[in-house]
Design a protein around this nucleic acid. Structure first.
Lengths: 133, 133
DNA sequence: AACAAACTTTACGTTAACGTAAACTTCATA
DNA sequence: TATGAAGTTTACGTTAACGTAAAGTTTGTT
């Protein structure tokens, strides 16, 4: 029923341009099992799903996730195919990640406050230098 | 006038225990110029300032800062000793960092929302499995 | 047909942030 | 005094995430 027929396809260079990464990186992510484009001959063909995954990989990187961790998160989306036993371990992984992120959240706020202070500081020094001229 | 005489000293193992990192790491940070403990003989002696820096280094790491970046941030605190010319470059570095952090902020919110969804998902599956017993 | 552009695989090289091992010194204590 | 705990320097090893170069294929265009 819910067959998505969004047959929008991308080449490897399409995606490398769009996300501003090298084709080497994209192939590397495939090596690591994070994306699995189809092939036309030996050429890689990427679809919407692959594109979304790329986006998620990059977001993960911005948050300091390793590729392996991002891979684990991808697995989480296939929860349906998972046994009850694994669900426990998945949930503990989720709560661990949530804790990490909350810590990061606090860290960011702290650093932002400091940066604002520093900015203030710089500006006032610059102003006083201006005044002397 | 404002001579801080907080003469609280720490050994390298004190700090390694407190922050749960290896002494190797602490010495490495010194190599990179991020901390500069005094010496008693050849033994390193750390003070309050060193301890604070260690804390900041670790916070930086949680945010994905490289040691070099954290080092740059340390320099920012010596703004007074800086020329007006450098102030411009410092301020642009600050605003770059602020932008990065705001991006991270958004990323974190997005991932947190997803993780909450996933958690919901897991829980409801577990519940339905419970019901079947 | 020949040429460039875009793709491929294979494989060795690179950097940051340490890990780890070796060989040494200093100091407290049994 | 010897032995063990904690410190030191020196230096080579390790891992993740690619960079980079070589050598070949495919495809569209001149």
């Amino acid at each position: 029923m819910s067959e998505k027929l969004t047959s929008i396809k991308y080449s490897i260079s399409d995606l490398s341009k769009e996300f501003d990464i090298t084709t080497r990186s994209i192939r590397f992510y495939e090596d690591q099992g994070l994306i699995s484009p189809t092939r036309k001959g030996q050429t890689r063909i990427y679809n919407q799903r692959d594109k979304v995954r790329l986006k998620l990989i990059l977001r993960g990187k911005r948050l300091g996730f390793s590729l392996a961790e991002t891979g684990r998160l991808f697995e989480l989306y296939d929860v349906d195919k998972t046994s009850a036993k694994q669900l426990q371990s998945i949930m503990s992984l989720i709560s661990q990640k949530k804790a990490d992120l909350k810590q990061q959240f606090d860290d960011i706020n702290a650093v932002l406050i400091e940066l604002n202070d520093l900015e203030e500081n710089c500006r006032s020094i610059l102003d006083s230098l201006e005044g002397k001229k």
